Simulated scan of single mutants.
Amino acid sequence: MNKITIFHNPRCGKSRETLKLIQEKVSDDDIEVVKYLEDVPSEEELKNILTMLGVKAGELVRKNEKIWKDNFKGKDFSEDGLIKVMVENPKLIERPIVIKDGKAVIGRPPEQVYSIL
C-alpha cells in the first residue's frame, strides 16, 4: 500500500479528528505525519499539493488567522506570491491536508478523507 501523508497540526481539533479517522482505516506504518508548522513544505511542494487538491492558492489560505488580517488582508497577490506567503507563514496553510496516490483532500470536515482512502 502507498503511504498516506497528512499535513498535521496536533493543536488543531479537525486535524486530530482526521488523523484518527485515517488511523481507524490504515496501519500506522502506512501513515506519514508531517507536522507542517515545523517541517514547512517548500514552494514547490505547496504547488504540487495545490495541483493535487485542484484549488488555487487563495483557497488554501486561512483568512481568519490574525497574521493574515494584520499583514496581508486586502492586498493583491499573484499565485506564486500567495504560495510564498504561506511558506513563510505556515500557520496560514489550511489543515489538515491528506495525500494518497497523487490525490489530496482537505479534512474539513474530517470525513472528506474517506474519499481518498
Results as ranks from 00 to 15, higher is better:
Glu44Gln: 14
Ser15Pro: 02
Met52Lys: 13
Gly54Met: 07
Pro110Gly: 02
Pro96Asp: 09
Phe72Thr: 00
Ser115Ile: 08
Lys103Met: 09
Ile49Gln: 02
Asp101Thr: 06
Met86Gly: 01
Glu38Pro: 03
Val113Met: 05
Ile99Trp: 02
Asp101Trp: 09
Val26Asn: 07
Phe7Val: 08
Cys12Leu: 13
Asp28Ser: 11
Asn71Cys: 10
Glu17Lys: 10
Cys12Val: 12
Met86Ala: 08
Arg108Trp: 08
Ser78Phe: 05
Asp101Arg: 11
Pro109Tyr: 07
Ser15Asn: 08
Gln23Met: 15
Ile93Ala: 07
Trp68His: 05
Gly81Ile: 03
Ile31Lys: 06
Gly58Ala: 14
Leu50Ser: 05
Thr18Leu: 05
Lys47Gln: 15
Asn48Lys: 12
Val33Cys: 03
Leu21Asn: 04
Lys56Pro: 11
Pro96Asn: 09
Lys69Glu: 14
Lys63Ile: 14
Lys20Arg: 13
Lys3Ile: 02
Leu82His: 02
Lys63Leu: 10
Val105Met: 04
Ile97Ser: 01
Lys66Arg: 13
Val26Asp: 01
Leu19Val: 00
Tyr114Gly: 10
Val40Ser: 04
Tyr36Trp: 11
Ser27Tyr: 08
Thr5Pro: 02
Tyr36Met: 09
Glu111Ile: 14
Leu21Ile: 11
Gln112Ile: 12
Lys69Met: 15
Met86Trp: 02
Glu44Met: 14
Val33Thr: 02
Asn89Asp: 12
Ile99Ser: 04
Val61Tyr: 03
Arg11Lys: 15
Tyr114Phe: 15
Gly54Cys: 05
Leu60Tyr: 11
Ile97Val: 07
Phe72Asp: 06
